[in-house]
């Protein structure tokens, strides 16, 4: 057990510092890079919030889909092999469901404002 503040709170504080204190004092390229840096910290924060549960769910979906054990990377590599060889395809509703859930999670961390993600959410 780690002490307070939490990692999420620390990352939030640094992003806030960059946006509201450092950036206004920067110009041109440096200001642009500061914005990119703050956005990157937002990704870290969302990943810290979402990934522990989402990764566990992804692993259990993959184990069921593939009928084998393994860690996240091993299972994903196996899924790639089976898609490539045609052993599993979109006619399997379980595959489609898995890819959608996994991809929606990735977007909720990486780019929650992306037009394709917003549209996918509104269509569901």
């Amino acid at each position: 057990m780690q002490d307070q503040p939490t990692a999420i709170e620390l990352v939030e504080a640094v992003a806030d510092f960059i946006r509201n204190h450092a950036m206004p004092q920067l110009q041109g390229h440096a200001a642009f890079h500061a914005r990119v840096a703050a956005n990157a910290l937002d990704i870290v924060k969302r990943e810290l919030e979402v990934a522990p549960t989402a990764n566990a769910e992804e692993i259990s979906r993959l184990k069921e889909l593939l009928g084998r054990e393994g860690n996240l990377e091993e299972l994903n590599l196996e899924l790639c092999n089976r898609i490539r060889s045609g052993q599993i395809a979109l006619d399997d509703p379980q595959l489609k469901d898995h890819l959608w859930k996994t991809t929606l999670t990735k977007l909720s961390i990486d780019q929650p404002n992306y037009s394709g993600y917003r549209r996918a959410i509104s269509e569901s």
Binding site: A40, I43, L99, W100, T103, L104, K106, L107, I109, D110, Q111, Y114, G116, Y117, R119, A120
Partner: peptide, 13 residues
């Protein structure tokens, strides 16, 4: 690197 997932959602759609 964290923008490549944008194209994954587009591909699924």
């Amino acid at each position: 690197g964290r923008r490549s997932s944008e194209t994954e959602i587009d591909l699924l759609r």
